[in-house]
Design a protein around this nucleic acid. Structure first.
Lengths: 353, 353
DNA sequence: AATCTTTAGGTAATCGATTAACCAAACAAA
DNA sequence: TTTGTTTGGTTAATCGATTACCTAAAGATT
């Protein structure tokens, strides 16, 4: 290793500008400098204020948030834990939340828990340890720490997927049960009664609620849950589950012509198989999904889906966080209005009715 | 406001456990506790070590990374700035990097710059101010601060899209020029010579290089750049640009039958229009994209694409970061081997040759 | 003139963890 | 016995910013 590189390594020439340097440059104490920088001007003369501001400018000073966070025991950072960034719905929600947070002067720190409880716990701890102002979980999984954190002062907000036990927690997102009911209504109104369900794990409240709403409504119309075939498999990602599940349906003697997938990703998987088998996803089936993936209008025109526009999440999430901080937390889940996106064939069909 | 809520607000019962509390609980000094917790055992007796570990366990202590970061002037956090999380390619890369970083004990903090220079600058500053160990930029845009940061000690790594000026910077990702050449080769080998290009801004090195490689190779085979029609529009997202651009091509008297889109998102946009016009994206055209979006095999079987598997990014990125930290930075861009994904029709065609 | 008030700003403690420097006791070597 | 040396710790400084509390000087009031 050349010696000039060694030198650099020995002491990273920390060219960070600290408050002390600004204060020295302006010939005032750090207290004065700090006050002026934070806009507390009633303790300084016009002259001093100008000096300090000049020093800040000249040195290119920016407060180290880490120092402030340590002292104030609170940072401007909001941790966002997403279950799977590979799922465009979740990344789009995260992106929307980022916009809204930055608008209010907060910084988003996004992490990917890969749907694993211990990774989620690790990040929960890390956020705590970084003194995050709040933790937003897009797609929570049941984990050991989750319940502890619910009560230890950290602001915790569940987005898109309710808390595993739904108790003492704040939620922003779709009304999963109602969405299930609405899908059932749409199908029934258009004379679709031969329905199959594809689902992954039902441990997640979101999926379970969607299914419950759907089946409840179908029951009311005389379609017994036992007459609604289910296909699923666990341990794979939703795309693969959808694919495998569709295989199951295609092998059935009297296969359903409506395939309700409890998430769009499942529908994507099912679609792949229909393509490979030379079937038509619009003529031969009616596919329904949940979440309305933002890519749907572009690459999945065949899919019907119900969901909340991703851009609605950011404002609602931030508004809810602020309400919690203001000691006026919502007492009810914050349900965002969901919308249907229907494919052309189904749309025309529904017009005729 | 009820009084019990007021009380809570007055002083957030900071139930964080600090090192001092652990030390007190174990009847040792913070120095001793700190050393034991960090595994420096040559300064402590067996007895003391057990005491401290018991205290840590009983109190559920976890070091506040903020304190450590302040003291050591360095955190375990790596900032990842993505240009657009709504783009599944970028989120998938981020997700992969997250895995690899966590494997090495680092924490990813992901931000969305929305392709905007000043947001990128804001996050660059914030990362600096949080003492991030490194900053990884997935899709950098030219910005004021970018050049400063290249030289002020912060480890900076460009992923998937080279630095705007390509000088003095580290890059991990696809060899854009070569990928362009390879696409040209594949087309030529299969007798495809009537080619159109859809692109968004060519200010980004990635897009410009792809185009250059493509046109250079076509030139060699006697297809002059002027004979390769281009369609583009600025200011919209890639999906919309693709859609608009495809309109342009469809209106042309002698429209190309091969549409090379400089990103998959552009291809998605173009695809939407072909669907709406009742055209067949496989029979009527040959679509080529770049990046091989991970969703392609599931919902875009019609697309041919060249790209690097998202999962390859994480390991390569982390390895490069470690090399930089070890004072043995790569002197060349780190090119990850790219692969082709061909649609069925094109694959069969290429077999025949 | 004596006292009070305001202005302008400094001193030092604090947040949590790390670590250089120091120290007392035990033990070993000369 | 005196002089190292090792063991097992402690004390206190430090990182960067904030802020409660103090103070000196100037101006206002009685």
């Amino acid at each position: 290793m050349p010696p000039n590189q060694r030198r650099k390594q020995k002491h990273t020439t920390t060219n960070r500008v600290s408050l002390a340097m600004v204060a020295a440059h302006a010939n005032v104490s750090t207290a004065t400098a700090s006050r002026i920088i934070n806009g507390i001007t009633n303790k300084a003369s016009e002259q001093t204020i100008i000096q300090v501001k000049k020093a800040v400018e000249e040195l290119g000073y920016r407060p180290a948030s880490i120092g402030r966070a340590l002292r104030c025991q609170e940072s401007r950072m909001v941790g966002v834990l997403a279950a799977s960034l590979a799922n465009p719905t979740m990344s789009a929600i995260a992106s929307s939340i980022e916009w809204a947070l930055r608008d209010e002067g907060y910084i988003m720190s996004l992490c990917d828990t890969h749907e694993e409880a211990d990774i989620q716990d690790e990040y929960l701890r890390e956020m705590q340890s970084q003194l995050a102002r709040a933790v937003v979980i897009i797609g929570a999984v049941q984990s050991e720490l989750l319940n502890d954190y619910r009560h230890n002062g950290t602001t915790l907000l569940f987005v898109n997927r309710p808390a595993p036990d739904q108790k003492n927690s704040h939620y922003v997102g779709i009304n999963n049960y109602q969405a299930g009911v609405d899908v059932a209504n749409t199908l029934l109104q258009n004379g679709k009664r031969h329905i199959g369900i594809i689902h992954a794990s039902l441990e997640f409240t979101a999926a379970a609620e969607r299914r419950r709403g759907l089946l409840d409504r179908l029951s009311e119309e005389g379609i017994h849950p036992n007459d609604v075939p289910h296909a699923h498999s666990e341990g794979l990602n939703h795309l693969e589950v959808g694919y495998k599940s569709m295989e199951t349906f295609l092998e059935m003697p009297n296969r359903p012509d409506v395939i309700v997938c409890l998430s769009d990703m499942l529908a994507y998987g099912a679609y792949r198989l229909t393509q490979e088998m030379g079937l038509d996803p619009v003529e031969d089936f009616t596919f329904f999904g949940f979440d309305d993936n933002p890519l749907n209008p572009w690459v999945a025109g065949w899919l019907n889906s119900v969901g909340v526009p991703a851009s609605a999440y950011g404002p609602a999430t931030v508004a809810t966080l602020k309400a919690i901080w203001n000691q006026s937390p919502p007492t009810e889940p914050v349900y965002l209005p969901h919308q249907f996106r229907l494919n052309k064939a189904f749309f025309l069909l529904s017009l005729k009715k």
